[in-house]
Amino acid sequence: MINQEWPLWEIFIRSRNGLSHKHVGSLHAADAEMAMSNARDVYTRRSEGISIWVVESSKIVASNPEDQGPLFEPAANKVYRHPTFYDLPDGLEHM
């Protein structure tokens, strides 16, 4: 007996054309083909999607919550990246 756990896969579903794939959950499967057919059975039983991506969880690189500060705080003091930063007269149209 091998007794080895099947790898974990993350499942992404496009609910309809025009929308991007969205993470819906995960499951275990021996290979990509099985992950795909299990994802179909588990996550699209009620017409939730028209396209499935399966990605082996170990292939995903995630940012660390502890790095949240250095990663995202620099954006907070760059208000000039937002259109509302600029003072323009009320009468100005089409802008």
């Binding site: 091998i2 007794n3 080895q4 021996a30 290979d31 099985m34």
Partner: peptide
């Protein structure tokens, strides 16, 4: 158990 093992062995071989 044998089904899970067989699926793993098959995936490895592929």
């Amino acid at each position: 158990a044998w089904v899970r093992d067989a699926a793993m062995a098959f995936a490895k071989k592929q």
